[in-house]
Nucleic acid binder design. Structure first.
Lengths: 217, 217
DNA sequence: AAAAATATAAAACACTTGTTTGAAATTGTC
DNA sequence: GACAATTTCAAACAAGTGTTTTATATTTTT
Protein backbone atom coordinates (compact mmCIF):
# COMPACT_ATOMS: atom_id res chain seq x y z
CA UNK A 1 0.00 0.00 0.00
CA UNK A 2 2.12 3.07 1.05
CA UNK A 3 0.79 4.88 -1.99
CA UNK A 4 3.55 6.10 -4.29
CA UNK A 5 6.21 6.22 -1.61
CA UNK A 6 9.49 4.57 -2.42
CA UNK A 7 9.41 1.10 -1.04
CA UNK A 8 12.20 -0.36 0.98
CA UNK A 9 13.34 -3.94 0.52
CA UNK A 10 10.78 -5.52 2.80
CA UNK A 11 7.86 -3.65 1.32
CA UNK A 12 8.99 -4.43 -2.21
CA UNK A 13 9.29 -8.08 -1.33
CA UNK A 14 5.79 -8.05 0.12
CA UNK A 15 4.44 -6.35 -2.96
CA UNK A 16 6.00 -9.01 -5.13
CA UNK A 17 4.34 -11.80 -3.19
CA UNK A 18 1.02 -9.98 -3.34
CA UNK A 19 1.33 -9.52 -7.09
CA UNK A 20 2.27 -13.15 -7.60
CA UNK A 21 -0.76 -14.17 -5.56
CA UNK A 22 -3.01 -11.86 -7.54
CA UNK A 23 -1.68 -13.25 -10.80
CA UNK A 24 -2.13 -16.82 -9.57
CA UNK A 25 -5.63 -15.87 -8.44
CA UNK A 26 -6.53 -14.58 -11.90
CA UNK A 27 -5.28 -17.71 -13.51
CA UNK A 28 -6.70 -20.30 -11.15
CA UNK A 29 -9.99 -18.66 -10.19
CA UNK A 30 -10.78 -18.10 -13.86
CA UNK A 31 -9.96 -21.67 -14.65
CA UNK A 32 -11.71 -23.47 -11.82
CA UNK A 33 -13.81 -20.90 -10.01
CA UNK A 34 -13.61 -19.73 -6.44
CA UNK A 35 -14.78 -22.79 -4.59
CA UNK A 36 -12.72 -25.23 -6.58
CA UNK A 37 -9.52 -23.31 -6.12
CA UNK A 38 -7.89 -23.99 -2.78
CA UNK A 39 -5.54 -21.74 -0.88
CA UNK A 40 -2.98 -24.47 -1.32
CA UNK A 41 -3.39 -24.30 -5.10
CA UNK A 42 -2.94 -20.55 -5.02
CA UNK A 43 0.12 -20.50 -2.82
CA UNK A 44 1.73 -23.30 -4.78
CA UNK A 45 1.19 -21.39 -8.03
CA UNK A 46 2.50 -18.19 -6.49
CA UNK A 47 5.40 -20.10 -4.99
CA UNK A 48 4.86 -18.98 -1.42
CA UNK A 49 3.70 -20.35 1.89
CA UNK A 50 0.13 -21.34 2.63
CA UNK A 51 -0.17 -18.68 5.29
CA UNK A 52 0.71 -15.92 2.83
CA UNK A 53 -2.86 -15.49 1.63
CA UNK A 54 -4.08 -14.81 5.13
CA UNK A 55 -1.05 -12.74 6.05
CA UNK A 56 -1.13 -10.45 3.03
CA UNK A 57 -4.82 -10.38 2.21
CA UNK A 58 -6.54 -11.45 5.38
CA UNK A 59 -8.24 -14.41 3.77
CA UNK A 60 -9.18 -16.12 0.54
CA UNK A 61 -12.31 -14.02 0.05
CA UNK A 62 -10.40 -10.79 0.22
CA UNK A 63 -7.79 -11.94 -2.27
CA UNK A 64 -10.67 -12.69 -4.60
CA UNK A 65 -12.13 -9.22 -4.19
CA UNK A 66 -8.77 -7.51 -4.58
CA UNK A 67 -8.22 -9.41 -7.80
CA UNK A 68 -11.49 -8.04 -9.17
CA UNK A 69 -10.69 -4.51 -8.06
CA UNK A 70 -7.38 -4.55 -9.86
CA UNK A 71 -9.04 -5.75 -13.05
CA UNK A 72 -11.96 -3.37 -12.70
CA UNK A 73 -9.72 -0.35 -12.53
CA UNK A 74 -7.64 -1.51 -15.47
CA UNK A 75 -10.77 -1.90 -17.56
CA UNK A 76 -12.37 1.37 -16.56
CA UNK A 77 -9.21 3.30 -17.32
CA UNK A 78 -9.21 1.95 -20.84
CA UNK A 79 -12.89 2.67 -21.35
CA UNK A 80 -12.70 6.19 -20.01
CA UNK A 81 -9.93 6.92 -22.44
CA UNK A 82 -11.78 5.51 -25.44
CA UNK A 83 -14.99 7.35 -24.73
CA UNK A 84 -13.22 10.61 -24.00
CA UNK A 85 -11.34 10.38 -27.27
CA UNK A 86 -14.45 9.61 -29.29
CA UNK A 87 -16.69 12.24 -27.76
CA UNK A 88 -14.07 14.89 -28.44
CA UNK A 89 -13.66 13.86 -32.05
CA UNK A 90 -15.70 16.05 -34.42
CA UNK A 91 -18.08 14.49 -36.95
CA UNK A 92 -18.07 11.12 -35.25
CA UNK A 93 -20.92 8.85 -36.31
CA UNK A 94 -23.08 6.68 -34.10
CA UNK A 95 -21.38 3.66 -35.60
CA UNK A 96 -17.97 5.07 -34.72
CA UNK A 97 -18.96 5.54 -31.11
CA UNK A 98 -20.46 2.10 -30.83
CA UNK A 99 -17.51 0.51 -32.57
CA UNK A 100 -15.15 2.18 -30.11
CA UNK A 101 -17.03 0.97 -27.07
CA UNK A 102 -17.69 -2.52 -28.33
CA UNK A 103 -14.25 -3.21 -29.69
CA UNK A 104 -12.65 -1.93 -26.53
CA UNK A 105 -14.67 -4.46 -24.57
CA UNK A 106 -14.13 -7.33 -26.98
CA UNK A 107 -10.79 -6.93 -28.70
CA UNK A 108 -9.04 -8.96 -26.05
CA UNK A 109 -11.61 -11.63 -26.44
CA UNK A 110 -8.98 -14.28 -26.51
CA UNK A 111 -9.08 -17.12 -24.08
CA UNK A 112 -5.41 -16.75 -23.48
CA UNK A 113 -5.84 -13.15 -22.51
CA UNK A 114 -6.31 -13.05 -18.73
CA UNK A 115 -8.07 -9.71 -18.94
CA UNK A 116 -11.00 -11.09 -20.85
CA UNK A 117 -11.08 -14.19 -18.66
CA UNK A 118 -11.31 -12.08 -15.52
CA UNK A 119 -14.12 -10.06 -17.03
CA UNK A 120 -15.94 -13.27 -17.74
CA UNK A 121 -15.33 -14.47 -14.22
CA UNK A 122 -16.63 -11.18 -12.90
CA UNK A 123 -19.94 -11.76 -14.63
CA UNK A 124 -20.04 -15.31 -13.33
CA UNK A 125 -19.41 -14.04 -9.85
CA UNK A 126 -22.14 -11.43 -10.01
CA UNK A 127 -24.49 -14.24 -10.98
CA UNK A 128 -23.24 -16.64 -8.34
CA UNK A 129 -23.63 -14.03 -5.65
CA UNK A 130 -21.02 -15.54 -3.37
CA UNK A 131 -19.69 -12.04 -3.08
CA UNK A 132 -22.03 -9.07 -3.01
CA UNK A 133 -22.15 -7.39 -6.41
CA UNK A 134 -21.39 -4.00 -4.88
CA UNK A 135 -18.26 -5.53 -3.43
CA UNK A 136 -17.11 -6.35 -6.95
CA UNK A 137 -18.52 -3.60 -9.11
CA UNK A 138 -18.63 -0.74 -6.65
CA UNK A 139 -19.61 2.55 -8.26
CA UNK A 140 -17.61 1.93 -11.39
CA UNK A 141 -20.51 0.27 -13.13
CA UNK A 142 -22.77 3.27 -12.62
CA UNK A 143 -20.02 5.59 -13.77
CA UNK A 144 -19.62 3.52 -16.90
CA UNK A 145 -23.31 3.57 -17.64
CA UNK A 146 -23.74 7.30 -17.23
CA UNK A 147 -20.62 7.81 -19.33
CA UNK A 148 -22.11 5.97 -22.28
CA UNK A 149 -25.56 7.31 -21.61
CA UNK A 150 -24.37 10.89 -21.96
CA UNK A 151 -22.44 10.25 -25.12
CA UNK A 152 -25.53 8.58 -26.54
CA UNK A 153 -27.75 11.51 -25.65
CA UNK A 154 -25.51 13.76 -27.69
CA UNK A 155 -26.63 11.96 -30.80
CA UNK A 156 -30.30 11.78 -30.02
CA UNK A 157 -31.31 14.43 -27.46
CA UNK A 158 -34.96 13.54 -27.91
CA UNK A 159 -34.37 10.11 -26.43
CA UNK A 160 -36.04 9.85 -23.04
CA UNK A 161 -34.24 8.47 -20.03
CA UNK A 162 -36.15 5.25 -19.91
CA UNK A 163 -35.50 4.31 -23.51
CA UNK A 164 -31.87 5.33 -23.23
CA UNK A 165 -31.40 3.04 -20.25
CA UNK A 166 -33.11 0.17 -21.97
CA UNK A 167 -30.80 0.65 -24.92
CA UNK A 168 -27.81 0.68 -22.60
CA UNK A 169 -28.84 -2.67 -21.20
CA UNK A 170 -29.24 -3.91 -24.74
CA UNK A 171 -25.77 -2.76 -25.65
CA UNK A 172 -24.50 -4.49 -22.54
CA UNK A 173 -26.32 -7.65 -23.57
CA UNK A 174 -24.83 -7.58 -27.05
CA UNK A 175 -21.31 -7.16 -25.70
CA UNK A 176 -21.46 -9.54 -22.77
CA UNK A 177 -23.04 -12.38 -24.71
CA UNK A 178 -20.06 -13.09 -27.01
CA UNK A 179 -17.75 -12.46 -24.09
CA UNK A 180 -19.44 -15.27 -22.21
CA UNK A 181 -20.30 -17.61 -25.02
CA UNK A 182 -17.55 -17.11 -27.56
CA UNK A 183 -16.96 -20.85 -27.72
CA UNK A 184 -20.54 -21.38 -28.86
CA UNK A 185 -20.14 -18.76 -31.54
CA UNK A 186 -17.11 -20.52 -32.92
CA UNK A 187 -18.88 -23.84 -32.80
CA UNK A 188 -21.69 -22.63 -35.04
CA UNK A 189 -19.76 -20.16 -37.17
CA UNK A 190 -16.36 -21.67 -37.63
CA UNK A 191 -14.82 -18.90 -39.74
CA UNK A 192 -15.86 -16.19 -37.30
CA UNK A 193 -13.37 -13.59 -36.17
CA UNK A 194 -13.69 -10.96 -33.48
CA UNK A 195 -13.98 -8.08 -35.92
CA UNK A 196 -16.89 -9.86 -37.52
CA UNK A 197 -18.70 -9.99 -34.20
CA UNK A 198 -17.90 -6.38 -33.46
CA UNK A 199 -19.30 -5.18 -36.78
CA UNK A 200 -22.41 -7.25 -36.25
CA UNK A 201 -23.00 -5.77 -32.81
CA UNK A 202 -22.46 -2.27 -34.13
CA UNK A 203 -24.95 -2.90 -36.90
CA UNK A 204 -27.66 -4.31 -34.65
CA UNK A 205 -27.14 -1.79 -31.87
CA UNK A 206 -27.27 1.13 -34.29
CA UNK A 207 -30.44 -0.22 -35.87
CA UNK A 208 -31.99 -0.63 -32.43
CA UNK A 209 -31.07 2.85 -31.31
CA UNK A 210 -32.37 4.42 -34.48
CA UNK A 211 -35.60 2.48 -34.15
CA UNK A 212 -36.19 4.48 -30.99
CA UNK A 213 -34.70 7.79 -32.03
CA UNK A 214 -36.37 8.04 -35.39
CA UNK A 215 -39.64 6.48 -34.40
CA UNK A 216 -40.31 9.04 -31.67
CA UNK A 217 -40.04 12.36 -33.43
CA UNK B 1 -37.23 -46.12 -14.79
CA UNK B 2 -40.16 -48.43 -15.53
CA UNK B 3 -41.42 -46.23 -18.29
CA UNK B 4 -45.17 -45.81 -18.12
CA UNK B 5 -45.75 -49.07 -16.31
CA UNK B 6 -48.00 -48.94 -13.30
CA UNK B 7 -45.83 -48.51 -10.29
CA UNK B 8 -46.18 -50.71 -7.28
CA UNK B 9 -45.96 -49.26 -3.78
CA UNK B 10 -42.21 -49.45 -3.51
CA UNK B 11 -41.57 -47.82 -6.86
CA UNK B 12 -44.05 -45.07 -6.15
CA UNK B 13 -42.39 -44.39 -2.83
CA UNK B 14 -39.00 -44.20 -4.51
CA UNK B 15 -40.33 -41.83 -7.11
CA UNK B 16 -41.65 -39.57 -4.38
CA UNK B 17 -38.28 -39.39 -2.69
CA UNK B 18 -36.61 -38.69 -6.02
CA UNK B 19 -39.05 -35.90 -6.80
CA UNK B 20 -38.62 -34.36 -3.37
CA UNK B 21 -34.87 -34.44 -3.88
CA UNK B 22 -35.17 -32.87 -7.32
CA UNK B 23 -37.40 -30.14 -5.93
CA UNK B 24 -35.02 -29.51 -3.06
CA UNK B 25 -32.16 -29.45 -5.56
CA UNK B 26 -33.88 -26.77 -7.64
CA UNK B 27 -34.47 -24.65 -4.60
CA UNK B 28 -31.11 -24.99 -2.90
CA UNK B 29 -28.80 -25.15 -5.90
CA UNK B 30 -30.44 -22.05 -7.35
CA UNK B 31 -30.08 -20.26 -4.08
CA UNK B 32 -26.56 -21.17 -3.10
CA UNK B 33 -24.98 -22.89 -6.09
CA UNK B 34 -23.66 -26.39 -6.39
CA UNK B 35 -20.58 -26.21 -4.23
CA UNK B 36 -22.25 -24.36 -1.39
CA UNK B 37 -25.12 -26.79 -1.18
CA UNK B 38 -24.24 -29.91 0.78
CA UNK B 39 -25.82 -33.30 0.49
CA UNK B 40 -26.91 -32.83 4.06
CA UNK B 41 -28.74 -29.62 3.11
CA UNK B 42 -30.48 -31.41 0.27
CA UNK B 43 -31.58 -34.43 2.23
CA UNK B 44 -32.75 -32.29 5.11
CA UNK B 45 -34.87 -30.18 2.74
CA UNK B 46 -36.23 -33.29 1.05
CA UNK B 47 -36.84 -34.86 4.44
CA UNK B 48 -34.94 -38.06 3.76
CA UNK B 49 -31.76 -39.77 4.78
CA UNK B 50 -28.29 -38.58 3.79
CA UNK B 51 -27.62 -41.73 1.84
CA UNK B 52 -30.69 -41.20 -0.35
CA UNK B 53 -28.86 -39.00 -2.83
CA UNK B 54 -26.30 -41.69 -3.49
CA UNK B 55 -28.84 -44.45 -3.42
CA UNK B 56 -31.33 -42.90 -5.83
CA UNK B 57 -29.07 -40.80 -8.02
CA UNK B 58 -25.64 -42.29 -7.58
CA UNK B 59 -24.12 -39.09 -6.31
CA UNK B 60 -24.54 -35.37 -5.91
CA UNK B 61 -23.29 -34.58 -9.43
CA UNK B 62 -25.86 -36.79 -11.03
CA UNK B 63 -28.71 -35.30 -9.04
CA UNK B 64 -27.56 -31.94 -10.34
CA UNK B 65 -27.60 -33.12 -13.94
CA UNK B 66 -30.96 -34.82 -13.57
CA UNK B 67 -32.39 -31.60 -12.21
CA UNK B 68 -31.25 -29.77 -15.33
CA UNK B 69 -32.62 -32.44 -17.62
CA UNK B 70 -36.05 -32.23 -16.06
CA UNK B 71 -36.08 -28.46 -16.48
CA UNK B 72 -34.65 -28.59 -19.97
CA UNK B 73 -37.40 -30.86 -21.21
CA UNK B 74 -40.09 -28.76 -19.59
CA UNK B 75 -38.76 -25.67 -21.29
CA UNK B 76 -38.30 -27.23 -24.69
CA UNK B 77 -41.81 -28.59 -24.70
CA UNK B 78 -43.20 -25.14 -24.13
CA UNK B 79 -41.01 -23.60 -26.80
CA UNK B 80 -41.80 -26.21 -29.41
CA UNK B 81 -45.47 -25.59 -28.87
CA UNK B 82 -45.19 -21.81 -29.19
CA UNK B 83 -43.11 -21.92 -32.34
CA UNK B 84 -45.30 -24.56 -33.95
CA UNK B 85 -48.38 -22.49 -33.25
CA UNK B 86 -46.87 -19.29 -34.64
CA UNK B 87 -45.38 -20.79 -37.77
CA UNK B 88 -48.73 -22.33 -38.62
CA UNK B 89 -50.59 -19.09 -38.15
CA UNK B 90 -51.21 -17.24 -41.42
CA UNK B 91 -50.22 -13.59 -41.82
CA UNK B 92 -48.01 -13.61 -38.79
CA UNK B 93 -45.58 -10.69 -38.64
CA UNK B 94 -41.94 -10.79 -37.68
CA UNK B 95 -42.82 -8.97 -34.50
CA UNK B 96 -45.44 -11.58 -33.68
CA UNK B 97 -42.94 -14.37 -34.04
CA UNK B 98 -40.31 -12.59 -31.96
CA UNK B 99 -42.84 -11.67 -29.31
CA UNK B 100 -43.90 -15.27 -29.03
CA UNK B 101 -40.40 -16.57 -28.57
CA UNK B 102 -39.22 -13.83 -26.25
CA UNK B 103 -42.27 -13.75 -24.04
CA UNK B 104 -42.22 -17.52 -23.70
CA UNK B 105 -38.68 -17.28 -22.39
CA UNK B 106 -39.28 -14.33 -20.11
CA UNK B 107 -42.84 -14.39 -18.91
CA UNK B 108 -41.91 -16.40 -15.87
CA UNK B 109 -39.15 -13.98 -15.13
CA UNK B 110 -40.08 -13.84 -11.51
CA UNK B 111 -37.59 -14.65 -8.82
CA UNK B 112 -40.17 -16.70 -7.01
CA UNK B 113 -40.70 -18.82 -10.08
CA UNK B 114 -38.39 -21.81 -9.83
CA UNK B 115 -38.48 -22.34 -13.57
CA UNK B 116 -36.79 -19.05 -14.34
CA UNK B 117 -34.35 -19.58 -11.48
CA UNK B 118 -33.28 -22.93 -12.87
CA UNK B 119 -32.81 -21.43 -16.31
CA UNK B 120 -30.61 -18.81 -14.75
CA UNK B 121 -28.66 -21.46 -12.89
CA UNK B 122 -28.27 -23.40 -16.10
CA UNK B 123 -26.53 -20.45 -17.71
CA UNK B 124 -24.36 -20.00 -14.63
CA UNK B 125 -23.43 -23.64 -14.79
CA UNK B 126 -22.50 -23.53 -18.46
CA UNK B 127 -20.20 -20.66 -17.59
CA UNK B 128 -18.75 -22.31 -14.51
CA UNK B 129 -18.01 -25.46 -16.46
CA UNK B 130 -18.13 -27.73 -13.43
CA UNK B 131 -20.31 -29.92 -15.55
CA UNK B 132 -19.68 -30.28 -19.26
CA UNK B 133 -22.11 -28.14 -21.24
CA UNK B 134 -23.16 -31.10 -23.37
CA UNK B 135 -24.09 -32.89 -20.19
CA UNK B 136 -26.55 -30.10 -19.43
CA UNK B 137 -27.75 -28.90 -22.79
CA UNK B 138 -27.46 -32.08 -24.83
CA UNK B 139 -28.86 -31.71 -28.31
CA UNK B 140 -31.82 -29.65 -27.22
CA UNK B 141 -29.94 -26.41 -27.68
CA UNK B 142 -29.16 -27.20 -31.30
CA UNK B 143 -32.72 -28.26 -31.92
CA UNK B 144 -33.92 -24.99 -30.49
CA UNK B 145 -31.59 -22.96 -32.64
CA UNK B 146 -32.49 -24.68 -35.88
CA UNK B 147 -36.15 -24.38 -34.96
CA UNK B 148 -35.96 -20.60 -34.72
CA UNK B 149 -33.53 -20.38 -37.60
CA UNK B 150 -35.98 -22.03 -39.94
CA UNK B 151 -38.90 -19.91 -38.88
CA UNK B 152 -36.73 -16.85 -39.40
CA UNK B 153 -35.72 -17.94 -42.89
CA UNK B 154 -39.37 -18.04 -43.84
CA UNK B 155 -39.53 -14.29 -43.44
CA UNK B 156 -36.29 -13.44 -45.18
CA UNK B 157 -35.18 -16.24 -47.50
CA UNK B 158 -32.35 -14.08 -48.84
CA UNK B 159 -30.67 -14.13 -45.43
CA UNK B 160 -27.48 -16.16 -45.62
CA UNK B 161 -26.65 -18.78 -43.00
CA UNK B 162 -23.90 -16.83 -41.38
CA UNK B 163 -25.99 -13.73 -40.83
CA UNK B 164 -28.92 -15.79 -39.65
CA UNK B 165 -26.78 -17.47 -37.04
CA UNK B 166 -25.32 -14.20 -35.86
CA UNK B 167 -28.84 -12.88 -35.47
CA UNK B 168 -29.81 -15.95 -33.50
CA UNK B 169 -26.99 -15.32 -31.08
CA UNK B 170 -28.15 -11.74 -30.84
CA UNK B 171 -31.66 -12.81 -30.04
CA UNK B 172 -30.25 -15.15 -27.42
CA UNK B 173 -28.23 -12.30 -26.00
CA UNK B 174 -31.26 -10.04 -25.76
CA UNK B 175 -33.31 -12.69 -23.99
CA UNK B 176 -30.68 -14.04 -21.64
CA UNK B 177 -29.47 -10.68 -20.46
CA UNK B 178 -32.64 -9.65 -18.64
CA UNK B 179 -33.02 -13.20 -17.41
CA UNK B 180 -29.65 -12.94 -15.72
CA UNK B 181 -29.63 -9.31 -14.70
CA UNK B 182 -33.26 -8.48 -14.01
CA UNK B 183 -32.32 -7.03 -10.64
CA UNK B 184 -30.07 -4.50 -12.33
CA UNK B 185 -32.85 -3.52 -14.70
CA UNK B 186 -35.18 -2.83 -11.81
CA UNK B 187 -32.52 -0.86 -10.02
CA UNK B 188 -32.10 1.54 -12.91
CA UNK B 189 -35.66 1.56 -14.25
CA UNK B 190 -37.85 1.25 -11.22
CA UNK B 191 -41.21 1.24 -12.99
CA UNK B 192 -40.17 -1.49 -15.41
CA UNK B 193 -42.40 -4.46 -15.99
CA UNK B 194 -41.73 -7.63 -17.90
CA UNK B 195 -43.96 -6.71 -20.83
CA UNK B 196 -41.97 -3.52 -21.20
CA UNK B 197 -38.77 -5.52 -21.56
CA UNK B 198 -40.36 -7.92 -23.99
CA UNK B 199 -41.59 -5.15 -26.26
CA UNK B 200 -38.19 -3.53 -26.15
CA UNK B 201 -36.47 -6.73 -27.16
CA UNK B 202 -38.93 -7.30 -29.97
CA UNK B 203 -38.34 -3.79 -31.25
CA UNK B 204 -34.54 -4.02 -31.19
CA UNK B 205 -34.41 -7.55 -32.56
CA UNK B 206 -36.75 -6.72 -35.41
CA UNK B 207 -34.72 -3.65 -36.29
CA UNK B 208 -31.53 -5.69 -36.25
CA UNK B 209 -32.97 -8.40 -38.44
CA UNK B 210 -34.32 -5.93 -40.95
CA UNK B 211 -30.98 -4.15 -41.02
CA UNK B 212 -29.61 -7.34 -42.52
CA UNK B 213 -32.56 -8.44 -44.60
CA UNK B 214 -33.25 -5.13 -46.22
CA UNK B 215 -29.65 -4.06 -46.60
CA UNK B 216 -28.73 -7.10 -48.65
CA UNK B 217 -31.16 -7.12 -51.49
C1' DA C 1 -45.89 -67.32 5.80
C1' DA C 2 -41.02 -67.72 4.18
C1' DA C 3 -37.69 -65.82 1.20
C1' DA C 4 -35.94 -62.31 -1.73
C1' DA C 5 -35.62 -57.70 -3.04
C1' DT C 6 -35.72 -53.08 -2.09
C1' DA C 7 -35.50 -48.88 0.72
C1' DT C 8 -34.20 -46.30 4.90
C1' DA C 9 -31.29 -45.33 8.81
C1' DA C 10 -27.31 -43.88 11.66
C1' DA C 11 -22.60 -44.12 12.01
C1' DA C 12 -18.15 -44.21 10.32
C1' DC C 13 -14.76 -43.22 6.77
C1' DA C 14 -11.37 -40.85 4.31
C1' DC C 15 -10.36 -36.56 2.72
C1' DT C 16 -10.14 -31.56 1.88
C1' DT C 17 -11.00 -27.11 3.41
C1' DG C 18 -9.54 -22.12 5.31
C1' DT C 19 -7.31 -20.44 9.06
C1' DT C 20 -4.25 -20.13 13.16
C1' DT C 21 -0.17 -20.93 15.76
C1' DG C 22 4.43 -20.30 17.33
C1' DA C 23 8.98 -20.59 16.01
C1' DA C 24 12.61 -19.41 12.58
C1' DA C 25 14.47 -16.35 9.26
C1' DT C 26 15.05 -12.03 7.18
C1' DT C 27 15.23 -7.08 7.02
C1' DG C 28 15.13 -2.31 8.90
C1' DT C 29 16.45 0.97 12.43
C1' DC C 30 19.17 2.74 15.98
C1' DG D 1 26.32 -5.07 15.69
C1' DA D 2 22.00 -5.18 18.75
C1' DC D 3 17.28 -4.71 19.11
C1' DA D 4 12.81 -4.37 16.87
C1' DA D 5 9.73 -5.20 13.20
C1' DT D 6 8.28 -7.76 9.48
C1' DT D 7 7.86 -11.82 6.73
C1' DT D 8 8.22 -16.82 5.97
C1' DC D 9 7.58 -21.40 7.29
C1' DA D 10 5.87 -26.05 8.70
C1' DA D 11 2.66 -28.02 11.56
C1' DA D 12 -1.57 -28.35 13.73
C1' DC D 13 -6.44 -27.23 14.12
C1' DA D 14 -11.32 -27.52 13.79
C1' DA D 15 -14.94 -27.98 10.79
C1' DG D 16 -17.21 -29.69 6.78
C1' DT D 17 -17.32 -32.62 2.60
C1' DG D 18 -19.30 -36.73 -0.40
C1' DT D 19 -19.55 -41.37 -0.02
C1' DT D 20 -19.63 -46.12 1.99
C1' DT D 21 -20.88 -49.38 5.26
C1' DT D 22 -23.62 -52.26 7.98
C1' DA D 23 -27.76 -53.05 10.11
C1' DT D 24 -32.74 -52.48 10.23
C1' DA D 25 -37.25 -51.89 8.30
C1' DT D 26 -40.45 -52.35 4.64
C1' DT D 27 -42.50 -54.31 0.62
C1' DT D 28 -42.85 -57.78 -3.12
C1' DT D 29 -42.55 -62.30 -4.72
C1' DT D 30 -42.72 -67.13 -4.24
Amino acid sequence: MAANKTLNGLEAQSAQVRDRLLDAAERLFCEKGFDRTSVRDLTAAADCNIAAVNYHFGGKDNLYIQMFHRQMHRMMDRHREVIARLTNTPDVTLEDLLRGIVSQALNQLDNNDPSSAVMKLMVREVLNQHVGKDEILGDLMNEFFTLISKSLMKFYPTLNRRDARLLLFTLDALVIHPLLFFDFYLELISDLDIDGIIEHIVKVAAAGIRAYAEGDD
